[in-house]
């Protein structure tokens, strides 16, 4: 295995584009090293991105939006008070990943690009309307986070392309977000269902909303019917019931020892209700 430590994203993209065999990027390594250890993935080229300047930084732009470096670990997101104040749902999704030790290493970009349908930080990013900056052999482009997952273990990134930053939009006034997942224990487990809700209020009424579901379909995705169920409402019981039904309708989960189809579907509805209630009270500043 060749271990590379490029000092720019362009070099990283060139290395990846030129590599013929199995190639992986190394951010926190909490997926890559486990897969190497299991013999599932034995990279010919491993491209460590942590020597690229800026990858450890969290920067707020003049418009209030955020640029999060691709090597920022979960623990650093949680320690950033201003980011947590703006996007608590995004941060709480990432903070659910693994143990304290894993939090010291695991990144948003790694969570997204590993391609797990149960990746805990991804629904929050999708609901937030986050985008990724992508550097490839032909230059830089950007894409909404929801366009990256392509089914279990797969992304839509072209060979040689990599994520060079995660971008969160300006929070603006009267907004709130939240992420909840269900696991059979309290820590260190894979989501059986997950839901993120991001909304903006005008007075007491929901003016805008985005809802994303995790672990209940091959891809983490936006659930537009869920958003439609609560937009224009004050999140009263009728709206919550409509949201619950829309979330259940959006599910096409797997059936396994961790949760049956019926269970995952029901729980997705319950989580949608609860996450919406949290996002709503956060938007009200409660």
């Amino acid at each position: 295995m060749n271990y590379h430590t490029p000092s720019t994203f362009e070099d990283a993209a060139r290395l990846a584009g030129a590599a013929g065999g199995v190639t992986r990027f190394l951010a926190g390594g909490t997926d890559v090293l486990v897969q190497m250890r299991a013999g599932m993935v034995l990279p010919d080229d491993l491209i460590d991105l942590k020597k690229i300047p800026g990858v450890h930084d969290i920067v707020q732009g003049a418009d209030g939006g955020w640029r999060i470096g691709i090597a920022v670990p979960g623990a650093a997101l949680g320690a950033h008070a201003a980011l947590v104040a703006d996007w608590p749902g995004v941060v709480e999704g990432m903070e659910l990943v693994g143990s304290t030790q894993v939090q010291g290493r695991a990144t948003l970009a790694g969570n997204l690009c590993n391609g797990s349908p149960a990746a805990d930080s991804v629904p929050g990013l999708v609901a937030a309307g986050a985008t990724v900056e992508i550097t490839g052999p032909d230059g830089t482009r950007s894409a909404p986070v929801e366009e990256i997952p392509a089914g279990p273990g797969k992304t839509t990134l072209a060979p040689g392309e990599l994520i060079s930053a995660i971008l969160l939009p300006p929070r603006g006034k009267a907004g709130g977000d939240a992420y909840l997942r269900f696991i059979p224990r309290t820590e260190m487990d894979i989501a059986v269902a997950g839901c993120a809700v991001n909304l903006r209020l005008e007075g007491d009424t929901i003016a805008e909303a985005r809802v994303a579901l995790g672990a209940v379909a091959p891809r983490i995705a936006l659930a537009p019917d869920c958003a439609a169920a609560i937009i224009g409402t004050t999140l009263d019981e009728a709206a919550l019931a409509a949201l619950d039904a829309a979330a259940r309708a959006a599910c096409s989960p797997i059936d396994d020892k961790r949760g049956t189809v019926a269970f995952r579907t029901e729980v997705a509805g319950v989580l949608a209700r609860r996450a919406a209630a949290i996002a709503y009270s956060r938007a009200k500043g409660e």
Binding site: Y3, L33, V34, R37, S99, T100, Q101, G104, R105
Partner: peptide, 27 residues
């Protein structure tokens, strides 16, 4: 375990708690 689950390999790296089984020696 060698896979980040048990914590028996815990060390700190620049002051941050990590599983040393999930860090490469070259890092």
């Amino acid at each position: 375990c060698g896979t980040g689950d048990c914590g028996a390999c815990s060390v700190t790296l620049d002051g941050t708690l990590v599983c040393s089984c999930l860090v490469l020696g070259v890092e």
